[in-house]
Design a protein around this nucleic acid. Structure first.
Lengths: 124, 124, 124, 124
DNA sequence: GTGGTCTAGACCACC
DNA sequence: GTGGTCTAGACCACG
């Protein structure tokens, strides 16, 4: 199973499940058209309420990552990776903007942040 | 008054109050030793329960930003700005690390993020 | 129930609750990982406001004794007993130092205090 | 002036004043029969409200340490030092008993406490 | 005037 | 069911 949840993680359980399935889809671990585990199976595997998985699947469907066919199961949709990348790009830009603002209060410059990123690049 | 709160903001009211006072202190808008508004006054100003402001002040005291003396009021402590900057630096580094990981899933490179930061720098 | 509170005790109710739960944890009456009573149940048992128990639990969480997960409940953390003992040892040393100073003003010697302790030891 | 007060001290101001005058009396810095500063003078010296000093003096009078003669001033009483020492002895015994109980929860033995006291004795 | 505590009841998100 | 937040009003100690 490609999903791991933890009570120590402050995020709600349903969100942890949702994020990890989303990641698996985006990274291609789950092919478009392939079927997801049934809600009941995944609930049993993760020792979690059915309702929690149900909510994760519903949210994924609302965000267009999967489609659920009653009686058949849930399937990964064929989504446009370029569009997803652009959306993520915007999201990251917003978060960077916020971080810059946070740093500004403490006299931390954008250059300091660029320096950190360059270090991270070399480490990897 | 230097504090603005909103019910539209998903963060709890007490947290909004706390963050903004913290910011004001860090940025030097509130001098060390100066007194904060009484909890009752601030509650009236913000049209909020006394207990909500009390909680914000208590949290600020727990984090060492203010001290509060029964019968006297609450006062800004004389905190070490260098230490605060270092802590914030670490926090930002962690968040950047996380963002890099997020971007990686979508084939967004560190260089892309550096490019965004450089644009933000020019805009400012 | 392992908690008893009293309005005659000058300490705040939330503090009485907190201290007693802390004691129960430290003494091993509450195993790491075991769940605490829900705040609403304990509030009903002790005939006290929910918010009073909530505050006790919050303080315990801030001090690292328990973790609380929305929708699930509160759980005893797996804390390091050796570290706790060391901290308590330091605290007791400070208090003894203070008592020695107090006694000094009245010409009470350290030997007098040692004698008292030895008596207490025999009584037990 | 033999009294120092501080806003950093969590104890109420009137109590700080009271404790320090009491100490001065017990240690003989203030002779029986000698007069204390007037309430107004002490209030001015300590930059504190008259009412705060008034309360300290009232408490001292209630505990038999001083006597206040309206229009004349406040005077140190001639108290029995042996009786005071006995009372303090009882107080210290109670506090030691409490400390032993506290330590017990953490497996700290009376012998550990005696050892601490012996160290303090050698240090002094 | 100040802060410290507590109540009784409410609404929300999460499981 | 669980915890998280908030309100409106109350009483107390301190200055």
């Amino acid at each position: 199973m490609f999903v791991n949840i933890s009570n120590n993680n402050p995020d709600p359980l349903y969100q942890q499940v949702m994020e990890q399935i989303k990641d698996a889809i985006v990274q291609g671990l789950l092919e478009p058209g392939s079927s997801l585990p049934s809600i009941r199976n995944m609930a049993k595997d993760l020792k979690v309420s059915v309702i929690t998985i149900k909510r994760a699947y519903t949210d994924l469907e609302n965000h267009g990552y999967i489609v659920t066919r009653p009686g058949l199961g849930s399937f990964v949709t064929d989504l446009n990776k370029e569009r997803l990348k652009d959306e993520k790009m915007k999201e990251i830009k917003e978060k960077l903007k916020y971080l810059v603002g946070e740093g500004f209060k403490f006299n931390i410059e954008i250059d300091d942040m660029i320096k950190i990123l360059k270090e991270l690049k070399e480490d990897s």
